[in-house]
Amino acid sequence: MIWYNKPEIWSEDNNSVYVRVEGYTDFWRVTHYDFVRDNGHFFYQGQASDFVASVKVTGQYKDLYDQAGLMLRLDERNWIKAGIEYVDERQHISAVVTRDFSDWAVCPQSHNPSSVYLRLTRRHDSVRIDYSFDDFTYQMLRLAYFPPYVAVQIGLMAAAPDGGGFDVTFERFAVLDIS
């Protein structure tokens, strides 16, 4: 796997990756905020065919917009990030789909789960984003268009747009080819 915007502090051990997310990092393009940011942390591998990617994410979110999860990326103008995002002192299951402009969908979680399981399925021209709190019962958050039949980057994403950073652990990241 390769880092895009490698954090200063991180480690990899067996089936987990620990990251000390650096502050003032983000992935966003234009919409509502009128800025472009492409300096979040992304630890990825290449994937040329359809796949299912999954991971367990456990973060110590504390500041507005602290976020961690999965990212699928073609380039700086075409990507999807999904995971937990901390807004109004509450964790939200979150997805941002970007095709030149970012859009954002959230599902508030009043119980602030200790961990979330994410599954991202790319099949032809679509990406399905599912989440779970027990790794058995999954809910669909979003189904989005993504350019088909092109090689992409898939991996772990974390950012802290407004705060000083936080700690996150990713466990059991896997990519299963389904072509």
Rank of each mutant, 00 (worst) to 15 (best):
G69R: 06
F42E: 05
D66I: 06
L64K: 11
E22N: 13
Y61R: 13
L74W: 04
D66H: 09
A53N: 05
Y61G: 03
D66S: 12
R37H: 04
V19F: 08
Y44N: 10
V30C: 01
D38K: 02
K62T: 13
F43A: 11
V19A: 04
D66P: 05
L74E: 06
L74D: 08
F42D: 05
G23V: 02
F35C: 12
G23Q: 09
A53V: 10
Y61F: 13
H32M: 15
V36C: 08
Q45M: 15
A53C: 03
G23N: 12
Q47T: 14
D75F: 04
Q45L: 15
R20W: 03
D38M: 14
D75A: 01
V30G: 02
Q60E: 05
G23K: 05
A82W: 00
T31Y: 10
D26V: 11
E22W: 01
L70K: 08
R37I: 08
T25C: 04
G40R: 02
F42M: 12
Y65S: 14
G69N: 14
Y33C: 14
T25K: 00
Q47A: 06
N39S: 04
V21I: 12
F42V: 06
N78V: 11
R73W: 09
V17I: 15
A68E: 00
N78F: 02
K81W: 00
Q60M: 07
R29H: 03
Y44P: 04
V57G: 03
D26N: 08
R77T: 14
Q45D: 05
L70R: 01
H41A: 03
N39D: 09
F43E: 07
R77K: 15
Q67Y: 04
T25Y: 11
G83E: 00
V30E: 10
Y44C: 07
L70Q: 02
I80A: 05
F35W: 15
F43Y: 15
D75Y: 00
A48H: 09
D50K: 15
Q67L: 03
E76T: 06
F51H: 06
V36Y: 11
R29F: 08
I80F: 00
K56N: 10
H32A: 09
G59R: 04
Q45V: 15
I80W: 00
T25W: 14
V55T: 07
G59I: 00
V30S: 01
V19E: 01
R37M: 14
N78T: 12
A48G: 10
V55F: 08
V17F: 12
F42P: 09
T31G: 04
G59Y: 00
N39K: 03
H41G: 03
Y44T: 04
D26H: 11
D38Y: 13
R20V: 09
D63T: 09
F35D: 03
H41K: 01
M71E: 07
A53G: 02
R29A: 07
Y61D: 10
W79T: 01
D34W: 15
D34R: 12
H41R: 01
A82P: 07
K56T: 01
D34K: 13
E22L: 12
L74Y: 09
K81A: 02
